[in-house]
């Protein structure tokens, strides 16, 4: 494992912790898209079906469990917690996320490395992860105002994607036979989706102003 991959995993973990902290500390999930969270839960469940059949390292197994458990906890809070549920911006979170699931599934059936159950689920999870942030970005765009922790959450998620790209570049040059274009192309698409957000994030940071997205 290289430093980029590890740093990427850590920023991914931090983003989830920031989100849990926001929900726990403010008892509110305003500004957070439940659809994005449900898509991530689906992404992790589909990708980590190998958790019992394939052992890579203790680190990998623990991280898989943490990602599945924390994302399910967030979804549970947003759906089941009496107080948190009331703050959900239901009328702003209207992205048709079922289209994303259907499109990812069709693409996975057409473009995969091997026609096996696990490989197709794996490709599906990669495609779905690439677009899972869309409902969240649309929600932020609609509400205009982004509170601090929500901004940090999206920032760390974007940082995770950027670091994974550096990780692939590093692996491409250091490991023989490392070329997995399904993940790399999807990863590039996913990172590009953050470009706009990052632009405004750095603008607000530079001007020491509250993060605002243009309508």
């Amino acid at each position: 494992m290289n430093i980029f991959r590890f740093a990427g995993d850590m920023t991914h973990l931090i983003s989830i912790l920031v989100l849990l902290l926001k929900i726990y500390a403010t008892k509110s999930c305003s500004g957070i898209s439940r659809k994005t969270q449900e898509l991530y839960a689906l992404v992790f469940l589909a990708r980590y079906v190998d958790i019992f059949t394939e052992f890579i390292s203790v680190y990998n197994t623990i991280m898989k469990i943490v990602f599945i458990a924390s994302t399910l906890a967030i979804v549970w809070c947003m759906r089941g917690h009496r107080v948190v549920r009331r703050s959900y911006d239901k009328e702003l979170d209207t992205f048709r996320h079922y289209f994303l699931i259907a499109a990812s599934l069709v693409l996975a059936l057409l473009v995969h490395e091997k026609f096996t159950f696990q490989e197709i689920l794996w490709a599906f999870s990669i495609y779905l992860e690439a677009v899972a942030i869309l409902p969240q970005l649309v929600l932020l765009q609609r509400s205009g105002n982004v509170d601090n922790l929500t901004g940090q959450y999206v920032f760390f998620l974007g940082a995770y994607r950027g670091l994974y790209i550096l990780n692939w570049i590093y692996r491409y040059f250091t490991e023989p036979h490392f070329s997995r274009w399904i993940a790399c192309v999807s990863g590039l698409v996913q990172t590009a989706l953050y470009a706009d957000f990052f632009y405004y994030y750095f603008l607000s940071w530079k001007n020491n102003a509250k993060l605002k997205l243009p309508a």
Binding site: D9, E54, I56, N60, M63, W122, H177, A183
Partner: peptide, 10 residues
């Protein structure tokens, strides 16, 4: 997974 495989990532 075989060496050089992306499946060892999260």
């Amino acid at each position: 997974p075989p060496k050089g495989s992306i499946h060892d990532e999260l």
